[in-house]
């Protein structure tokens, strides 16, 4: 079985503080980590490898420093690591990111399962996984909490949705995005980390994966981030009182209409 896990290197947001004066994020010296949900995705892949045997390739699109995130995944048990790094892919939105990753996956081969995290803790859109599935024309299932069955042509998984838990049977190849309930990621063994630190990371440019410049990076993006800011949440309380319950209702209604809520 062939598995690709898409991972993203993100700033450790638990350590990101907001500058109270300038109202911007203090990113200075903040360490980069593997997006936490992606560690769960790697863990899910490694568990399948341990039980059924598989070759795992971890894939990321990012700057050259992202190799350290890839190495961490190698240490956890992945076999190969691919970095797509190129000026041409920088500044990508979810559309361009998922396109680029899909092209890289095509170059890797024909994986049976493509794992992604539920979402990235910096971008938070949760769109890249589904995007990859669309670009590759593969079935997908998201927010998976448990893998029940693995067979050569099918997965049976549990996922959460707004309406409750679902049991999904999905044919392979497919895209799966995972939630934290999938299982605590392992702490890599020291030996694993050392071997990972010696292992070569495959690096591809946009040309290597046949991704045309108008479809990647800023050029390939439909959206652009103009400004990042912390929204000011204004809290305002008012206690209403009236003679009778009916009068209180009217008063509340009037207030709501005034605030254009109803």
């Amino acid at each position: 079985m062939e598995i690709v896990v898409c991972i993203k290197q993100v700033p450790d947001t638990t350590e990101v503080k907001i500058d109270p004066v300038k109202n911007t994020l203090i990113r200075d010296g903040v360490p980069s980590i593997v997006n936490p949900f992606d560690e769960y995705a790697v863990e899910a892949a490694v568990r399948i490898k341990e039980q059924y045997g598989a070759k795992i390739t971890v894939l990321t699109m990012g700057p050259p420093q992202a190799t350290s995130a890839l190495r961490k995944c190698l240490a956890m048990g992945a076999d190969e690591a691919v970095l797509v790094s190129d000026r041409a892919v920088a500044g990508a939105d979810t559309l361009a990111t998922s396109y680029t990753l899909a092209k890289a996956i095509e170059k890797i081969g024909k994986p049976d399962i493509i794992f992604c995290g539920k979402m990235a803790i910096d971008g938070d859109t949760a769109q890249v996984g589904p995007g990859i599935a669309e670009h590759l024309g593969l079935p997908q299932t998201t927010y998976v909490q448990k893998i029940r069955e693995v067979s050569p042509h099918r997965l049976v998984v549990e996922r959460v949705s707004d309406s409750g838990h679902e049991l999904v049977s999905i044919p392979l190849p497919c895209v799966v995005t995972v939630d934290k309930a999938i299982g605590e990621p392992r702490y890599p063994s020291v030996k694993g980390s050392i071997n990972a630190s010696r292992q070569e990371i495959i690096t591809w440019s946009a040309a290597d994966i046949d991704a045309p410049p108008d479809k990647t990076g800023l050029n390939g993006s439909c959206t652009q981030v103009m400004r990042i800011f912390t929204p000011q949440i204004q809290k305002h309380n008012e206690m209403l009182s009236a003679e009778s319950d009916d009068a209180l209702c009217d008063l509340l209604l009037a207030k709501l209409q005034e605030a254009k809520i109803v």
């Binding site: 702490y187 063994s189 020291v190 030996k191 694993g192 050392i194």
Partner: peptide, 17 residues
């Protein structure tokens, strides 16, 4: 034990992490 066998106390692993 630590580097080769990955066989050491859980508390110590926590400190390493």
């Amino acid at each position: 034990e630590v580097m080769n066998e990955n066989n050491y106390a859980h508390e110590l692993q926590l400190a390493f992490r």
